[in-house]
Nucleic acid binder design. Structure first.
Lengths: 357, 357
DNA sequence: TTGAAAGCGGTACCAA
DNA sequence: TTGGTACCGCTTTCAA
């Protein structure tokens, strides 16, 4: 006869417990519930997941016992046997967290609706992924959403570890990783066109940090269109925050000797900084003297004192898509890669002279 | 002879695997590593945690094998035996997430430094805790930081579940729960004093939602001092966002027939809304015609176009304290409750006439 | 429908 | 320092 789980020990512990609370302040297990309900532990287990065949009466007895004991199934133990942690890793950069909190907020809501928990990793810089991934593997997350730069090797690691991943606002080099994006390339082209039609000829661009995919894509979009228009913009590097936007504007004004019609900032926060700088230190009237546009459509950009002309990302749709795609791929890892690209919406705002407004 | 872990099965699986990758695409376990390194599984386990006695040579062999296999200890499995998930639940409200993202950002950094992972729960409203707690229990988090309202019953649940908790910017009714706060009571008194000394006589207060501890404490602070000064303020309810600040200002102006010297908003975002409203629709000059103060010292409040007069919370210190207190209590659950209250720092800004500036 | 029992992948104690 | 082994608390066959 096999020794089994050493029921003697279990029984002893259970008998030693008072009827309402357990000895040693242990948290109740399914065995405790089973004992109290007078059923087997398997029955308890079946009660707590869908599709377990259980008689209504038994079920009721079990649930009563569970209730009396304050029993909650241990997600760790169940994760061990099912290989499902019900955890999704979310990797975002500090800058998104601080300057575009809507993303995390929405994402959190979407994941919640899909009944998975979010393990949050915020990176100081986009490049800090390295140390973080180990933790991701250890916790056996069911999947991940990444709004940070991953190099091909890191992306490969997700595949090796069988962790489905969805990229947020970026694509992998080979386009083989599921992604959700805001179509920034055309968005920037479009806004450049409108500025140009309205008469702008001297353009400046304030970029994000060099390792930012989001930034380079937007810069490319603007630059491509400007090239077609025969315009060579002045370009300065920013860091996504208002201060660097202000600094960027100063630099651009210097570079152009003050002859600057329009400034394209790759995000709203820098546009805000640039606007403040233009109005304040430079004494310019926006948009009469200079047009400044951003990108994102963040709440801050929408404040009355800025009312930034920008392109709003459909964050709700994007986060919803990202969460849904991930959940799909957790269930069916072999789904083909898919890239969902959402168009942004022009918000006219009041910081730019645009044609047709 | 006890059957043990059924090594036959394990061996079979292991032998079935190619030398580099495993059969069936399984993720490698400590048994696989042990096999490859030619040591026992226990040795592998000891290699991966501190204090395990292991010979340097053995250790090296094991680490090499682990590396070759891409082995990462399974946090779920180890959590099962150690009763430590290395997870900390963070409960915050949507409003903090959106209007004061610095808190989450810093908290994330602090927890990271202490080597625990963060399970994030963002609540639509402070009162939405209910459904969330079940998830907290199930995941057997080692502790929790709550920046949302918990009723006594909910706080009790943390004790019953042996989950140490630290309250952020709020205290429990009985003061028996470890908390980190920003001293808002005196802060508001102080700012009211300065406004009063500068000549303000007609005061308005824009509060947060009624279920917000933060709001009521700040309101009380301001009101107490005003009472001492013999002033009865007009009070309107806001919702922590700029729009409600604007609306609040309008309401206050109506209530006072335009005779309004100073408005105390319980957070910066509402102050921003109020400022916009005052400058815009009301055509007032701030602070000449009206003083408007906020609370928090958020990045948005610091933007040039607002430069809100406010009290800055020392977020870095507060989050650091919260994380440290929690970790202490995870290690030693019986530490006495402690409340750490940090004073805020007045940021003079330019939206209020203050005495002595 | 029910219960027995074999894991899931580690940890920790113990004897060697 | 090592390896053997009994768990941790749950899920999931498999018989009954």
């Amino acid at each position: 006869m096999p020794p089994g789980r050493d029921d003697a020990v279990r029984k002893h512990r259970i008998n030693g417990a008072a009827s309402t609370s357990l000895a040693g302040g242990r948290r109740p297990t399914s065995y405790d519930v089973a004992q109290l309900a007078g059923v087997s532990q398997s029955a308890v287990s079946r009660c707590f997941r869908s599709g377990g065949s259980i008689a209504p009466a038994t079920r009721k007895r079990v649930l009563n016992a569970a209730d009396a004991l304050g029993y909650q199934p241990n997600a760790i133990a169940s994760g061990l046997t099912t290989s499902r942690s019900n955890l999704v890793a979310v990797l975002i950069s500090r800058h998104v967290m601080l300057y575009y909190p809507e993303v995390l907020d929405e994402l959190s809501g979407r994941l919640d609706e899909l009944n998975v928990r979010m393990l949050l990793f915020t990176l100081r810089h986009e490049g800090d992924v390295k140390g973080v991934l180990d933790q991701v593997w250890r916790h056996r997350v069911d999947g991940a959403i990444a709004a940070v730069h991953l190099d091909p090797e890191q992306i490969g690691a997700f595949e090796r570890h069988h962790v489905p991943i969805v990229l947020y606002n970026r694509r992998s080099a080979d386009g083989q990783i599921p992604s959700v994006c805001c179509e920034s390339h055309f968005g920037e082209k479009w806004i450049v066109d409108r500025l140009h039609e309205a008469g702008a000829r001297s353009f400046g661009i304030i970029t994000g940090p060099p390792d930012s995919f989001v930034s380079s894509e937007r810069v490319d979009g603007a630059q491509d269109r400007l090239r077609e228009l025969g315009i060579i913009p002045n370009i300065v590097e920013g860091a996504f925050d208002p201060a660097s936007g202000a600094q960027g504007l100063r630099a651009l004004i210097e570079m152009t000797g003050g002859k600057l019609d329009a400034v394209v900032c790759v995000n709203d926060q820098m546009a805000i900084g640039a606007i403040d700088e233009a109005r304040g230190r430079c004494g310019l009237v926006v948009p009469r003297d200079i047009s400044i546009v951003g990108f994102d459509g963040t709440a801050t950009g929408r404040l009355h004192s800025y009312d930034v002309t920008t392109i709003r990302q459909p964050v709700e749709r994007m986060t919803e898509a990202a969460a849904a795609m991930l959940i799909e791929r957790i269930a069916a890892p072999d789904l083909p890669p898919e890239i969902r690209s959402f168009a942004g919406k022009l918000i006219a705002g009041s910081t730019a002279m645009l044609a047709g407004t």
